[in-house]
C-alpha cells in the first residue's frame, strides 16, 4: 500500500508539470495585466513598458514559464530597459514554494492572498458538503427502501427541480423570501451579504447566521444528484443475494441496511464525493459572488477578470494538486472498504 501511494505520487509529478504548462499558455490569452493597473489617469506608453519589464512580461512565454517554475534568482534581469541585464532576480519559483506576487494586490505574495481566503471557502463549502452528504444519504436510503412510495415521488420531484435550477436563481429566491419579504412581514430575517455584520463583529453566531442562505442554496442544487446516486446504488445493493442471506439470518433491519447494504453501496458514492471534494477548495464562484462571501470563488473571479496571472495560476495549481491527492485518498478508502481491491 505505501509503495502504491508513493508510486501514485511520483506519477503525479509529470502530470502536474503538463497541467501547469497548459494553464500557463492559456493564461497568456487572459488579457493584458498592465491594461488594468493604470488607475484612473491614462498611463503613458513609456510607463507601461517599464511596468512590463518590472513584472517580467516583456520576456518570451517560455522564459516567463521558466521563471515561474524555477525562479530567476540565478540570473540577472534588465529592469531599466537599456538592454543590459544588471539587476539580480528575486523570484524563487513554484518548485521552491514561491508562487510570485499578485499583480492586482501590488506585490502581496500569492500564497498570502490565497491563504487569506481559503478558510472562508473551506467553512462555506465544508458545511455545504456535509449537509449534502448527510441529507443525500438519509433521503437516498429512505427513498430506496420505500421505492415508488409517495415520499419517494415527492423527494424525486424536488430533486429534479433542484437539479434543473440554476444556482443564481435559487440564491436570489432565498434572498427574496427569507430576507426581503421576511423583513417586510416583520419576521426575523436572514442576512444576505458578507460573513458578518461589521457593527457586531466576526463572532461565531454572526458567521453561522450569514452562512445559512449560501449553504442552503449550494446544498439544494447539489443534493439532488447525490441523493439520486445514493438511491440507485442502494436499490441495486438491496436486491443482491447477500442481503437476502442477511435477512434469512434474522438480523435486525438497521444492521442489514447500514452495515450489509451501505458498506457495499458506499464504493460508488465515495468516488463521487472524492471527485467533488477538491472543488471545495475552488469555492463556489456564483454563490460567493451573489452572497458577497469572501472566499476563493470570488478571489478567482476578481483576479481572473484583471488578468492577475500569478494568483490565478496559484489557485488553479492548488486545485490540481488537490485533485491528485484526493484521487489517491479515494483509492486508499476503496481498499479499506472493499477487501477485494488490493494494490501492488
Amino acid at each position: 500500500m505505501t509503495r502504491y501511494i508513493i508510486r501514485r505520487l511520483l506519477q503525479a509529478i509529470p502530470l502536474l508539470f503538463v497541467i501547469s504548462l497548459v494553464l500557463f499558455v492559456l493564461m497568456q490569452n487572459m488579457g493584458d495585466p498592465v491594461a488594468t493597473m493604470g488607475g484612473r489617469s491614462v498611463t503613458r506608453s513609456a510607463d507601461r513598458e517599464r511596468l512590463r519589464r518590472q513584472l517580467g512580461l516583456d520576456k518570451p512565454i517560455a522564459v516567463q514559464y521558466l521563471y515561474w517554475l524555477v525562479g530567476n534568482d540565478w540570473t540577472k534581469i534588465d529592469l531599466d530597459g537599456d538592454g543590459v541585464a544588471e539587476t539580480p532576480g528575486q523570484r524563487q519559483g513554484v518548485l521552491r514554494g514561491d508562487f510570485g506576487a499578485s499583480l492586482v494586490n501590488r506585490g502581496k505574495p500569492v500564497l498570502q492572498v490565497i491563504w487569506d481566503r481559503l478558510p472562508n471557502t473551506l467553512l462555506l463549502m465544508g458545511a455545504s458538503e456535509l449537509v449534502i452528504i448527510i441529507g443525500a444519504l438519509l433521503i437516498g436510503i429512505y427513498s430506496a427502501l420505500r421505492q415508488y412510495s409517495v415520499i419517494d415521488h415527492v423527494v424525486t420531484a424536488i430533486s429534479f427541480v433542484g437539479y434543473s435550477m440554476p444556482i443564481f436563481f435559487i440564491a436570489l429566491l432565498t434572498m427574496y423570501i427569507f430576507s426581503v419579504n421576511f423583513k417586510r412581514w416583520g419576521l426575523p430575517y436572514l442576512p444576505t451579504v458578507g460573513m458578518f455584520d461589521p457593527g457586531v463583529g466576526k463572532t461565531t453566531g454572526q458567521v453561522a447566521l450569514h452562512m445559512i442562505l449560501p449553504v442552503f442554496s449550494l446544498s439544494f442544487i447539489y443534493f439532488a444528484g447525490y441523493s439520486r446516486y445514493v438511491r440507485s446504488t442502494m436499490l441495486e445493493v438491496m436486491s443482491q443475494d447477500y442481503i437476502r442471506t442477511a435477512r434469512s439470518k434474522g438480523l435486525p433491519r438497521p444492521v442489514i441496511i447500514y452495515l450489509h447494504a451501505l458498506k457495499n453501496a458506499s464504493l460508488p458514492i465515495v468516488t463521487v464525493i472524492g471527485l467533488d471534494l477538491p472543488l471545495l477548495l475552488a469555492g463556489a464562484i456564483v454563490t460567493e459572488r451573489i452572497f458577497a462571501w469572501p472566499g476563493m470563488g470570488r478571489l478567482f473571479l476578481d483576479h481572473a477578470s484583471r488578468s492577475d496571472t500569478p494568483v490565478v495560476m496559484g489557485i488553479l495549481m492548488m486545485i490540481s494538486v488537490a485533485v491528485v491527492v484526493f484521487q489517491i485518498i479515494v483509492d486508499v478508502v476503496y481498499a479499506w472498504l472493499d477487501p477485494r481491491i488490493r494494490y501492488s
Binding site: 447477500y242 434469512s248 458498506k263 472493499d338 477487501p339
Partner: peptide
C-alpha cells in the same frame, strides 16, 4: 442458497 458466489457479503469478513 443456490449461489455461494453471491450469497455472502463481499465486504465483510
Amino acid at each position: 442458497f443456490q449461489e455461494p458466489m453471491t450469497s455472502l457479503n463481499p465486504v465483510l469478513t
